[in-house]
Design a protein around this nucleic acid. Structure first.
Length: 432
RNA sequence: UCCAGCGUAGCUCAGUGGUAGAGCAAUCGGCUGUUAACCGAUCGGUCGCAGGUUCGAAUCCUGCCGCUGGAGCCA
């Protein structure tokens, strides 16, 4: 009886004969030997078919195999230092499932539009495979970190009646006879959940109908949003840097092969350990002015070039803290020492990958929250419930949101965010 | 929404007023250690669409459509 296994497990079967269900990734052959680049979803391995070692029909079949043909391959696992995996397969038999014809994505260069039109097939490539594995490890490490730190995962709704921050960038839909919007953040619901469960986090999709067309923007992206009862801004920053450190170190440990495939400079990731540097918004403005930026003043929000200039000063992610209250969300708590600024922070990733976290301590005073409601004209049942959280046992609490895809882009060293999610939703792209 | 660039073979591109090209892919053949293998041959076209200028337009002009990058906005 021949053992059925997968490529990621071949190390356990050296010098044994195994069978693996595979696709042909690429092939090189000569008159009497063929090299098959095989993939099975768990990894990639080279199969060697020598004319002298197999029946003639097996060798002929091997020569006929086309890119992305599917089959069961049987062979002996042998160690080979020339392989990146350290092993290869000496093929003895091939049981064909389908001979593929005219696979569109060839081993040569392709343009962005062509690859995006074939995203359902592009995912099979080595690079996309590696990015998806890194993404998965970030998600896995996230669950581990928050579970180990006493957090409960709660799932906020995706269909909502109103938003936390204006309505211009929301996707509108009908909810029977009412108007509804796709969620742009679960935060308000998470605050309610934190009052019930203490420490909570969510992980889910977020929708922004912004006409953004840059390498850092998706219309639909995934966010990790923790919310912590009885934690102030300072406690929250500590948790954020511990969390990001944990995620980066987990990827370094468990995705060595993938980071190698992606040609990621891991020495830069190895430096990512808490504590992270912090500067205030006011210090950042002063720094930018000294650097020669004359297009920004105190009270303006940063643009992408500003963020990059600040991040370039550091080898680790950097917190920018204490933004002006006016340019931040209505629920952020003003600094008691300087009420013009909020107890909030953005975390900017190194190497120009931009903002990956936005967070703050929340207003917990009922009267102040009511003032904010009046200022922002927040009325009706869609908002009233949130105000009640300040009426029935209000407490200091803080939270933040991490954009998964920007984090994947940074850790994997991927230039464009479209490669960090299996099926990106972009301006002008709803397919495949 | 604005700014810039680009649309030529299945793919990536060259061709800037005078016979439509190359590499890769595909097909056939050769090659026993290849790493985007290599060598030879064959096949492959509505030059984004519409109009205009010209003896003649892939090439120049106008409009439209599409794509890419960036800005604003944001994670």
């Amino acid at each position: 009886m021949i053992l059925k296994t997968t490529i990621n497990n071949v190390a356990k079967h050296v010098n044994e004969t195994v069978t693996i269900g595979v696709w042909l990734h690429n092939k090189r052959s000569s008159g009497k030997i063929a090299f098959l680049q095989l993939r099975d979803g768990t990894g990639f391995i080279q199969g060697v078919v020598a004319k002298s070692d197999v029946p003639e029909d097996v060798f002929n079949l091997a020569k006929q195999l086309t890119q992305e043909s599917s089959f069961y391959v049987t062979g002996k696992v042998v160690e080979d230092h020339r392989s990146p995996l350290g092993y290869e397969l000496q093929v003895s038999d091939i049981d064909l499932i389908q001979l593929t014809e005219d696979y569109p994505i060839t081993p040569k260069e392709h343009g962005t539009e062509f690859l995006m039109d074939h995203r359902h097939l592009w995912l099979r490539s080595k690079r996309q495979h590696a990015i998806m594995k890194v993404r998965n490890e970030i998600i896995r490490a996230t669950y581990e970190f928050f579970n180990d730190n006493g957090f409960v995962k709660v799932d906020p709704p995706i269909l909502t009646a109103a938003s936390a921050e204006g309505t211009t960038e929301l996707f509108h839909t009908k909810y029977f006879d009412e108007d509804a919007y796709l969620s742009q953040s679960g935060q308000l619901y998470l605050e309610a959940a934190a009052m019930a469960l203490g420490r909570v986090f969510s992980f889910g999709p977020t929708f922004r109908a912004e006409k953004s067309k840059t390498r850092r923007h998706l219309i639909e992206f995934w966010m990790i949003e923790p919310e912590m009862a009885f934690m102030d801004h300072e406690d929250s920053l500590k948790l954020q840097e511990e969390y990001v450190t944990f995620v980066v170190q987990s990827v370094l440990e468990r995705c060595k092969l993938e980071l190698n495939t992606l040609e990621r400079d891991v020495s830069k990731l190895e430096k990512v350990k808490a504590p992270f540097p912090r500067i205030t918004y006011s210090e950042a403005i002063q720094f930018l002015k000294e650097k020669g930026f004359d297009d920004i003043d105190w009270g303006d929000d940063f643009g992408a070039p500003h963020e990059t200039a600040i991040a370039e000063q550091y080898e680790k992610p950097v917190f920018i803290t204490h933004f002006p209250v006016e340019i931040k969300a209505f629920y952020m708590k003003p600094d008691p020492d300087n009420p013009e600024v909020a107890l909030c922070a953005d975390l900017i990733a190194p190497e120009g990958y931009g903002e990956i976290i936005g967070g703050s301590e929340r207003i917990n005073d009922y009267e102040l929250m009511k003032e904010r409601y009046d200022e922002h004209d927040l009325h009706g049942p869609a908002y009233e419930w949130y105000l009640q959280l300040r009426k029935y046992g209000t407490i200091p609490h803080s939270g933040f949101g991490l954009g998964l895809e920007r984090t994947v882009a940074w850790i994997a060293g991927v230039e464009h965010i479209r490669e960090t999610i299996p099926f990106p939703r972009l301006l002008n792209r709803l397919y495949p």
